[in-house]
């Protein structure tokens, strides 16, 4: 007589058990996912103006290499990183600051003054003076930094 009731009760208990299991699973799962992906979703550190050096060092019409050190915080370690930036000016007033990282696979490009080109030794890519792709596989021109001049010093925005 109570058979039906009994079955109802048991199926209810079964569902409740699964529900609780799901709750606990979510209790672990959601924080775990947040925990795992959190460093990846971290926004890049606030960018800041980095001083490159004196404006007078830039040669007219030739990309000039500036090296500067920046501190980067990765996880619990702070390390110093060297940043290499080519600065080009045609008139001494307007400056273009280009990263020396090849847009193809991240090798370092260098300026070959004979050929008037940036050259990437990894896959023989060439970039023009202003960073446009001339030859080889890179998908886009060299990355540029926002640049400003203040009191005869050059600054780029980066971090």
């Amino acid at each position: 007589m109570n058979e039906k009731k009994e079955i109802d009760r048991r199926s209810f208990l079964g569902m409740a058990t699964w529900a609780i299991g799901g709750l606990i699973g979510a209790g672990f799962g959601i924080p775990a996912i947040a925990y795992i992906i959190s460093p990846a979703t971290r926004k890049d550190e606030a960018q800041d103006w980095i001083r490159l050096g004196s404006v007078s060092k830039v040669e007219l019409g030739t990309p000039t290499l500036f090296k500067t050190k920046i501190e980067r915080q990765t996880g619990w370690i702070t390390k110093e990183e060297e940043l290499s930036i080519y600065v080009l000016t045609e008139n001494g007033r307007d400056f273009v600051a280009m990263s020396n990282i090849c847009t193809h696979l991240g090798c370092r490009v260098r300026w070959i003054s004979d050929q008037e080109q940036f050259f990437c030794p990894c896959h023989n890519a060439g970039f023009s003076k202003s960073g446009e792709v001339v030859s080889g596989p890179p998908p886009r021109p060299l990355d540029q930094y926002q640049v400003k001049e203040e009191d005869g010093q050059l600054y780029v925005l980066g971090g």
Binding site: A34, Y35, S38, G75, W76
Partner: peptide
């Protein structure tokens, strides 16, 4: 690194305090 990484887990990582 142990202490710094534990601090990192506790203060920086999302839900690190909970884990």
């Amino acid at each position: 690194h142990a202490y710094n990484s534990v601090q990192y887990i506790t203060n920086e990582v999302a839900a690190g305090w909970l884990i």
